[in-house]
Amino acid sequence: MKSISLSIEELIYCFYSEGLFEQGMGLKQTYFPDMDDEQFELILQASCRSLLAKNFLNYKLENHRYVLTSDISLIIKSLNYSNHSLKISKFIENGKQDSISLHISENGVYQHNMLYEGQVHQITEISGSELTNVAADYMNIKDKKQDETSELKISLQQTAFENMLTYAEENPMQLQSFLRQFAYNPTLTEDFTRDLIATKGKMNSIMLLAFNEKKEPQLEHILFFVPGIEKTWFINKSEDVYIVSECNKKLLESYFKERLEIFKETV
């Protein structure tokens, strides 16, 4: 497994080195909006030296320029364009959100973490078979226990789903009686109600993105998750119905196998 870390300045340099000027300029405008051209040139020069120290650059004598090594070049190209990406987001302390991305490209599968408020990017090459474990570990989704036999299934139309979230945030005392209209397991309904109230209706998510010919991300599907005391709850929209159920690694793996057809051999 190969893992690299790039500062935001180094990542900008890498994009420029690959001719991906739009992506590099976008990062510059986000992180260094007031930097003039002279200052930016100094940043690129410093990044070049730091990438050389990491052995991420080769010097081409014939045109007197530095280029990314082949393996780093593949990583940068995959960050720029992948057939599919999974953006996995969760709420952490103080109501803030954290996220990781899994880029699935012809060059490989890469886990992309942003650290220190995006100042450092950590990219790790993983195998397709590791997708489920990476996602499940990040979302704290466990294997199903052998003695678990009871299950929760709640089916909600769009309006009922929106009402559920409103109850959780604004009128939690009424949430359980509302959900009992749609579920037949009182104990698990109580557990789910307790956990949803604890998050005030805020849900973690996995977004499945595909990229069109213009390399623009298109949302193909989204899953919602409610972290709980004992379980993680899974909310999947099928046609016009939101289905709430208990989540485990096997369920998540089956979802990936169904959705990520082009990687069915490796996932």
Rank of each mutant, 00 (worst) to 15 (best):
N185W: 01
N58I: 10
M25Y: 06
K142L: 05
I12V: 09
F32Q: 02
K200Y: 08
Y81E: 06
I43P: 00
F178K: 00
G24F: 07
F211L: 09
I154H: 00
I43M: 11
L42P: 03
E216K: 11
T266R: 04
P227E: 03
L44M: 15
K142W: 01
S78Y: 00
K249H: 04
Q111G: 04
M114R: 13
N107A: 11
L179V: 08
P227V: 02
Y138Q: 06
F256I: 12
E253Q: 08
S205L: 05
Y184S: 14
E216N: 11
K2E: 15
K96Q: 11
K153C: 05
K77A: 01
M114H: 12
C48Y: 09
A160L: 04
M173S: 12
H112W: 04
H221M: 04
D240M: 11
L251E: 10
N212Y: 09
I72K: 03
D36K: 14
V244G: 02
I76Y: 03
I262T: 14
M139C: 13
T199C: 02
D195S: 06
Y184E: 12
S82W: 01
V241R: 08
S205D: 09
I72H: 02
F211K: 04
N133M: 06
A183N: 10
L102V: 12
K77P: 00
Y184Q: 12
Y138R: 04
L179M: 13
E22Q: 12
Q174R: 08
S5Y: 09
K60F: 13
K77L: 04
G228F: 01
Y167A: 05
T124R: 07
E62T: 06
M207T: 11
E220C: 09
L57N: 03
R259S: 07
E246D: 02
K237H: 03
L260E: 02
E253Y: 01
F263Q: 07
I262Q: 15
L251V: 15
H121N: 08
L175G: 02
T30K: 15
G201F: 11
I104A: 05
E253T: 07
N113M: 04
F211M: 06
R65W: 00
A198T: 11
S105W: 00
N63M: 09
L152E: 06
L52F: 03
P186G: 05
L42V: 10
S89D: 10
G228N: 01
K145C: 07
D98Q: 10
L44H: 06
F40Y: 15
S99N: 14
I197L: 07
M35C: 13
